[in-house]
C-alpha cells in the first residue's frame, strides 16, 4: 500500500454534516431503487413461470385431445381453387372450438386429431 493511501486512511479530516447527510440520502436512494427492481424481477418471473406452465398444459391438452374449456361452436368453410380460379362453391363443416391460456384449437364432429 502506498504511503499516500495510508495517509488518506489515517487522516482525521472530517466532512460537513450536510455532505454526510446528502451521501446517506444518495446511498439510500440507490439501495431503494435496486431493491425495488429486484422485487419486481421476482414478481414478473413468478408470473411468467405460472403463465408458461399454463401454456404448456394447454399445449399438452391440445395434443392429447383432452380439452378443458369449450369456447363455442361454428363452422369451417373450405373453398377450392384450381389454377387461381374458384372451382366449386364451398364445403362447410361444423366444428367446435376449445381453448386455454389464449390458445384456441378446433375439432370436428368426432373430435379425432391427426
Amino acid at each position: 500500500m502506498s504511503r499516500r493511501v495510508r495517509d488518506k486512511l489515517a487522516s482525521n479530516r472530517g466532512e460537513s454534516l450536510v455532505e454526510i447527510l446528502v451521501s446517506v440520502v444518495i446511498t439510500g436512494l440507490a439501495m431503494l431503487m435496486l431493491s425495488a427492481v429486484i422485487a419486481r424481477a421476482y414478481s414478473v418471473d413468478h408470473q411468467t413461470r405460472a403463465r408458461s406452465e399454463g401454456l404448456y398444459e394447454a399445449i399438452s391438452r391440445a395434443e392429447a385431445r383432452a380439452p378443458e374449456e369449450k369456447l363455442g361452436e361454428g363452422k369451417l368453410t373450405v373453398t377450392f381453387e384450381r389454377a387461381g380460379e374458384a372451382y366449386y362453391p364451398k364445403v362447410e363443416w361444423p366444428v367446435s372450438f376449445y381453448g386455454q391460456e389464449g390458445l384456441v384449437y378446433s375439432y370436428g364432429e368426432r373430435g379425432t386429431l391427426p
Binding site: 369456447l71 381453448g99 378446433s106
Partner: peptide, 14 residues
C-alpha cells in the same frame, strides 16, 4: 386444388 380455410363462430377469432 388450392384449399382456402376460414372459420366462423364464437371463439374462432384466434
Amino acid at each position: 386444388y388450392t384449399l382456402r380455410f376460414s372459420v366462423d363462430g364464437e371463439g374462432a377469432q384466434a
